[in-house]
Design a protein around this nucleic acid. Sequence first.
DNA 1: ATCAGCTTTTTTATCGAGATTCTACTTCAT
DNA 2: ATGAAGTAGAATCTCGATAAAAAAGCTGAT
Lengths: 245, 245
Amino acid sequence: MTYGTVDPGEGKGAKSTLASSVYQQLRDDLLRGALAAESKLRVEWVVSRYGAGASPVREALNRLAAEGLLGRHDQRGFFLMPVSATELEELTRTRCWLEERALRESISHRTAEWEEQLVLALHRLARAERRLPEDPSTNNPEWEKLHRAFHRALIGACRSHWLVGFCDQLSDQASRYRLISQDTPGTGRDDLGEHRIIAERTLDGDADRAVEALLNHYRLTAARCMERFAQGYDPRAGVAKARRR
Amino acid sequence: MTYGTVDPGEGKGAKSTLASSVYQQLRDDLLRGALAAESKLRVEWVVSRYGAGASPVREALNRLAAEGLLGRHDQRGFFLMPVSATELEELTRTRCWLEERALRESISHRTAEWEEQLVLALHRLARAERRLPEDPSTNNPEWEKLHRAFHRALIGACRSHWLVGFCDQLSDQASRYRLISQDTPGTGRDDLGEHRIIAERTLDGDADRAVEALLNHYRLTAARCMERFAQGYDPRAGVAKARRR
DNA sequence: ATCAGCTTTTTTATCGAGATTCTACTTCAT
DNA sequence: ATGAAGTAGAATCTCGATAAAAAAGCTGAT
């Protein structure tokens, strides 16, 4: 009847805390779009789902709220941030501003090591399948990871961990929209080709055209989400009904 | 002599939670530079200082860590983020990138209401004293608040709450550096004049020159902090002794 | 003296119960 | 019916105690 009867060992998290473990899992599920249907996030529900006490769960929720993936009203608990077309627009706009700056700085301060990292990231991305082989209707988490790593590598030489962090944060938000809206790849789009062009121009030091390709990449993705959004997305996720105080 | 022995009702925070209250107070103290001498932040210490249980305190610490004001190592607690010259440099650089973009967007999407807010913010700032009248060696919290409000108003029309949030975050960090290094105003610097010029050029729609003034403003402040830093700042604050793992 | 290994002390992280606050529902008067 | 007031239920938030982990202290051999 020890404390963590089942828990801390569960899986791999050898020396991490329960709070961090819940944080990670919940975050993954958030980005995966797995929870977008519910607006309110009751602590008790999270507790029973991830098998941890209220205290670590609350810590995890607080972190996620500070990151903008959840919302919080004092004495009224936590809720999933609603999704909307205008929010997606604002998100994309901001993302383009920051990523442009980051990419330009990266290019103008490039190092040999950074270039190698980028080549590597592209290669790995090329090797991965976007959809799961066994179930082509589901996104491949491995691809998602490599995709993020590629974009991360792209701006890795910008000499600002702040800017990198902000881009990551926006990237998380964008992922959420993309996976919620079930953006189906392959439909008249050459994912790999787009990334290859971005990398090529970047490695060539052609900042203007690299930025152009990168921004088009983001805007195209956003536009496709918007479509799905408009046509048939169940708006249950947006029900947060921002209540007054 | 505890802080809020009588706790939640204390003062005005009628319907907020203890966690939020601790968060606010601790955050203020962090920015005020009041705690910079200690590197480690023991939970028990915070508990006894702010008069709340461990759970709300931990929630507050988690929020602050997610914001970058604190650091955290699993199973090893929280610590104050160390300060350093290179970090200040990186911070300033990032800040200039983001604020430039925000100001340009604000100017090119300006509205009458935004302009009025800006005029108002400048007026209020002009009325406030930077130092406390009774003790000229201490910064006036009221001025700090109005100063922040001014810069916030400046970028208020940029149409991105994300960008505004990022700028706020960097602004917090910059405040911390400024107040830690005890940047003494009045020494050969016309604070109000700088802000007035920024506002004028902004209201004139002269984006290029407004940005120039704004960035000079930030860079000058950073340079003054750096001086203080180099000459006589007690580096106890930076002792975080980045321990491996 | 120095360092590995063990013991003690300090600190962090977690749980379970209880107090407080909000929400939903019922009742009653207009 | 509509709306206000009161009540029962559910959820959030908080505390105090306890387990787990890390840090500090100690012993003894090389």
